[in-house]
Design a protein around this nucleic acid. Structure first.
Lengths: 179, 179
DNA sequence: AGCATTAATTATCTTTTGTTAATGCACAGC
DNA sequence: GCTGTGCATTAACAAAAGATAATTAATGCT
């Protein structure tokens, strides 16, 4: 799909910088511009909105995944969502600057950009559609089936907002489902 | 942002084929592959899912907009959503085949692809976030503020599923809001 | 270990939504 | 112009979710 030469791989991997950050470390604040994207080598992160002072979780990511406020990173506009770690994490940091330089040098990396945007779109569409297609209880069951690590590694009040309900309501759903 | 030569513009515009289709004409069936994308010159269209035999509207588009099942069009995989016209429409049809040929000839058009994917992502993110951030009533008000043409041109039972509620509930929301 | 803080569950009550059914309206087709 | 079909509204009841508060469980910190 995207064959790279030895040289290109090297340039690509050298664009990333290793960084360790502690639990609950803010990577991108809401309103600021996401100048970096993060590959999670170890640990966990989340994206969240802030509404009326409340944090509303938009997504969670674990090792093997990329995390950033994508619209802000792609367009370099102020981010509507914040990014933070949930656990002590090892990150491979890719700055927008370096990515742009990479793309300028090697246009092949446009394909990388494109692939990221497409993948993100499809993931998001799956998630968005679940809100018009499924009830909160169905969304909870789907989450268990498709992303069980969320339940094990994310506090429930964060999962609640991710599912679009209150923590109290999530607790009741859990009781209904298990009981 | 994407400067094109005279020649490129010509090649681009020639890739589109004019087509008139009547109201409620199915452009892409759920489960089939979207081989075309549509620029709406006149008329209106919608994307919808089918769940338990029910049609659930995912989005509406009017003149000046593009419509297609994007994930299916981009990746040429079976579409989870159907596409149809809501009014008699004049469409400018771009087949995936022609777009690919265009991109192969003129790599500049990769930027077109990228721009489409990014824009679609951002639109979708705005919509997805409204489900975790806002109540159905707030979503209705936001729709009125941001896309008032929907209310004027789309039947309310379709708007209801678009907002994630039943037609009965939408009717009550409307009464609350206006009364 | 002990204390303080935060999270999760449970309870109670209110509000909203879903469901089903009935009514009134509008529009399409004859 | 009539008639039938489908759509929006209203009503009545059931189910689910929000809000608030109290209790229990877990976690963090010194």
């Amino acid at each position: 799909m995207m064959p790279l030469s030895e040289k290109q791989w090297q340039a690509f991997s050298e664009a990333f910088i290793y960084r360790e950050v502690p639990k609950r470390h803010l990577l991108t604040a809401a309103g600021s511009i996401a100048r970096e994207a993060y590959f999670i080598n170890k640990g966990a992160g989340r994206l969240y909105f802030i509404k009326d002072g409340e944090e509303i979780s938009a997504n969670f990511m674990f090792e093997g995944g990329f995390i950033t406020s994508l619209e802000s990173f792609l367009l370099q506009i102020p981010s509507r969502q914040a990014v933070e770690t949930l656990e002590d994490s090892e990150l491979l940091v890719l700055s927008k600057e370096r990515l742009d330089a990479l793309v300028a040098q090697q246009p092949v990396f446009n394909l990388f950009n494109k692939a990221i945007a497409e993948m993100a779109f499809i993931m998001l569409q799956r998630r968005a559609s679940s809100f018009i297609l499924d009830s909160p209880e169905e969304r909870y069951n789907n989450m268990l089936a498709q992303r069980p690590e969320i339940l094990n590694r994310v506090p429930q009040h964060m999962i609640a907002s991710y599912l679009g309900v209150t923590p109290v309501s999530l607790s009741r759903i859990r009781k209904r489902v298990s009981g």
